[in-house]
Each structure stands twice: as C-alpha cells, then as structure tokens.
Amino acid sequence: MRVSISEVFTSIEGEGIYLGTKTLFIRFAGCPLRCFYCDTPYALSIGNGTYYSIDEAKTIIARKVERGTFKANFTGGEPLLQHEAVRELARYVRDELLLKTYLESSCYDASRFLHVLPYIDICKIEFKLKDSNAIDDKHYTRLLENEMLCLRHAIASRKVTYIKVVLSSLSKREEVEELARMIFEGDASKAIDGFVLQPVNGVNEPTLEHMLAMYDAVHQYYPNVRIIPQMHKVMGIP
C-alpha cells in the first residue's frame, strides 16, 4: 500500500471546537469535491502529493511529532479518498504514538468513513451547502445522505462529534434551517459536541447580518452553535 501525502507539519488548530490546540497536521492529497472556497487547491490532485509506503509515512509522522501535541489531524484534500491508508496511519498514531486522532472530512462516503472510524477519536462532520459548488445538483442529495450517515455512525460509536458548515453570502437561511432540523430531530442534540458556522474568507464573504440570520436558524434547534472564522488565517500561520 502507498499513500499520497501533501504535507505533514505542526501548527495551531485554527478551526472548530479544538481551536488553539497544538496539532500535527497530516494532509492527504486528492479530493473528489470542488468547493469554490477551497483554501488548499494544491492538495486537490492526488498526483500533486508525494507517494510513500505506509512505513515511510509512519516514520515521517513520528519525526514530526512535537512535545505537547494535543492531537493529530487527518485532513486534505479529502482523507477518505485514501481510506485504507488513513486507517493504518490513524491506528499507528493512536496506538503507538498515543495521540488523539481527529478526522477532518467532507464525509462524502459513509462506507469509507465507517472503515476508518474505529481508530478515530474526534470526528468533524462537514455538511456542504448547495452554494459551495462541491458537487453538481444531480448528486447533491446523495452527498447529503452520506454526511447524515457519517454523523449517525460517529454518534453511535460515541466519538467526540461536532458539525461544521461553511457560510458564504450565497448561503440560504432556509437551507441551513432545514439542515439543522434534519440533524436535530430526536435526541441528536445531546450527542453532538458542537455546531460551528464558519464564514468564508475572501470571495463571497457573508455580512454580519447574514451570519446572525444563519446563527438564529440553527440556534432554535441547538443553542450551543458558534460562528468561528479560520483563526489560523487571522494569525497568518499554516
């Protein structure tokens, strides 16, 4: 087995509920989606990464781990595109390097997600809105179904689980409200550890009024919703 990796580095977590933690980032190359706001276009093609054997990748990861690191973030690109490699490396990081493992994924494939889940401690389930242009309209419903399945798998496995939704000026309140309703019908709110609305940076940035409307759309179903920008961009770090 070989794995295409774009980069491995230590930085400060700039997103989500673990904002500010010292994190080892393992960025996998390749992504089947094409979000207009993608901030790592260099990792979209699997061919743009460097190919390693699993043992070589383990050696690189071990060398990059710094003292006091809180977690290892498996990101991309889209890590589920190389799910077999993610499973092996996550097992190694968790069981041998004794770090918490964190999966940052668009959750486009629930079967691949389920394959890596046993070795993941923290799941960020990202729901793509239609305005993201991640996928064409014909296949959007299928993407949403997979995201919902991944959320259910993570909750059933008692993982630390939180939701992220990227907002732009093109995002529709009605869509966000319906998404929140779908997610939180039943007792899901008791099992979810956070709901983050992340405004895009640059093209189609939402106004404060727009962000507050989206906040209200979620808040009626889940009061612990938060609006958090990508703080690593504010700090000027990778």
Rank of each mutant, 00 (worst) to 15 (best):
Y140A: 02
L24M: 06
Y37L: 08
F195N: 00
L19N: 10
D39E: 12
L143N: 02
D193F: 14
G186A: 08
S53Q: 11
E209D: 10
G30H: 03
K172A: 07
L129R: 01
E96D: 14
S111V: 06
L33N: 01
P79S: 04
Y92R: 03
L208G: 01
K172H: 09
L197C: 08
T59M: 12
C150H: 08
F127E: 03
Q198M: 15
M1C: 11
F36S: 02
R152M: 07
R94H: 14
F74L: 09
T161D: 14
D193H: 15
S189W: 14
L208I: 11
I46Y: 02
D187Q: 07
T10G: 03
E96L: 10
E88S: 12
T23G: 05
R94F: 10
K100S: 12
R94C: 06
H83F: 15
Y42I: 12
L129S: 09
V3H: 09
P79G: 02
R142H: 05
N133I: 04
Q82D: 05
G194Q: 13
S157L: 01
A156M: 02
V203L: 11
Y162D: 08
T40K: 06
C35L: 12
I46C: 05
L179G: 00
A72T: 04
V160N: 07
G194T: 14
V93I: 11
G194E: 13
V8N: 04
K233I: 11
Q220Y: 00
C31I: 08
L117V: 03
T101D: 03
T50L: 12
T75F: 11
N201G: 03
K138D: 13
S11F: 09
D136V: 10
S157N: 07
V93A: 05
A29I: 11
G186V: 05
N146P: 04
C123D: 02
M231D: 05
K172C: 05
T69K: 08
Q82R: 07
V65Q: 05
P118F: 06
G186N: 09
F184A: 07
I12C: 06
K159D: 04
G236D: 08
E185P: 01
E66L: 13
Y102D: 11
E13A: 13
Y140T: 01
L129P: 05
E126Y: 13
C123A: 13
Y119V: 04
D55I: 11
L167F: 01
V176H: 00
F36N: 02
I12D: 04
H219G: 07
R67N: 14
A188G: 03
H115A: 09
P118R: 01
P223L: 11
S169C: 00
A29M: 09
E104N: 15
L19K: 08
L44F: 12
